[in-house]
Amino acid sequence: CSAVPDYRYDKKTVLLVSLVLAILHNITTSCVFVSYFITNHPTFPKCRTWRPKKFLMSYEDNDEKKEDERKSNLEVKFFSIQTFWYILLLVCSLLGSFCYGYFFSLHLLHMAQFNQLVKHAIQVVSKNGRSLLWVSFYGIFVFYIYALISFAFYREIYPSTEGLYCTRMYECFVTILRHRLIVSEFEFPNPTGKPFIYYFYKALFDVPFIIIITIGLNIIFGIIVDTFSELRHNKWQVENDMHALCFICSRSSYDFEHNGDGFAKHVKEEHYLWSYLFFFIHLDETRPNDYTALYSHVSRQLEKKDCGFFPINRALSLQHEEDNSEIQL
């Protein structure tokens, strides 16, 4: 009997199963797309009509203008990368159903939304993306310069029979980029029957190129490794602050465990983080004309990015400790 398995299938059955899977994929992608818009409410840029300048403006119009100029930190723009990504997912799902099934493969990248390790790796690349981009540009410039030199003096060492083309400038550039970087940076074609002076100049051409490539790759790897270390240190510092410091008053958990009623009770009842957040949201949704004196003070502090209204290094549960310290002094 043959070792090769004989696959027999009904073409209509395969088409039916593919159609059902495509419909399920479209429904799932549509649900993800709609849930994103329902959850985030992406906003369109405001189109303001032209108005002639007025020398006198009422107090109410001035308040409305200030209210329109305020920006929410929770707002999601429609013209953003995240919104375009979800639109692209929906479009690729439809194209995969009606055109080619290869478009379905793009949805595998969406798994990064549910994996913290992949998010961390993407953040490493995107955080120093400008530095990596500039280093890559300089590398391309170096390859272009060496392609010019190869095109001018060493065109004959790139035989087309071996997949190396250098009859035109762009062919020489692509060959240098592929052969020197992707295939191998240490394997160079060397012709035979040339005098020693030819190989001497060839060495002066090849050795600096190897050094430049090695240094450039090490710079890129160094940037990535340093970014990983920086993000790891920041993550450790954030986790340490979350478990050992109060977000509101910045007092350590040691103070509340030894002098107060406990750190857990303090962050849940006395300085509850979400109570402050709910107050800020309430302040943002309230019209400036309806502000009280306290609301106006906090609003002005927030506009100045001043957190002076926070009880820094103060807590009611530690008031007894502070009173005893004053008595001892």
Rank of each mutant, 00 (worst) to 15 (best):
G262W: 03
N289M: 14
E171N: 10
H107A: 11
N26P: 01
W134T: 15
Y201I: 00
H233K: 13
I197V: 08
T29N: 10
T49W: 06
G222T: 05
L16T: 12
S93W: 07
H107D: 11
L148R: 06
D61F: 03
L89R: 13
Y100N: 11
Q123F: 04
S105I: 09
H120K: 15
M111G: 14
V225S: 11
F141E: 10
D261N: 15
F209Q: 06
P311S: 08
D284K: 09
N73F: 04
L89M: 15
E321F: 14
Y7S: 03
S296A: 12
S35H: 15
I197Q: 02
L19M: 09
R287W: 08
C166N: 00
H179N: 12
I223M: 07
L56C: 06
L316E: 14
N259M: 02
D290F: 05
S253A: 10
N234L: 11
P159S: 06
R314W: 08
P42C: 07
T292E: 01
F205H: 10
G193E: 03
F309Y: 05
I38W: 08
L133C: 07
Q319R: 14
S80L: 03
P191L: 06
S58T: 14
E326P: 02
F55T: 07
V207M: 04
R180D: 00
T83A: 15
S325Q: 13
I81S: 14
T39D: 10
S126I: 13
L21W: 06
A244Y: 13
V4Q: 08
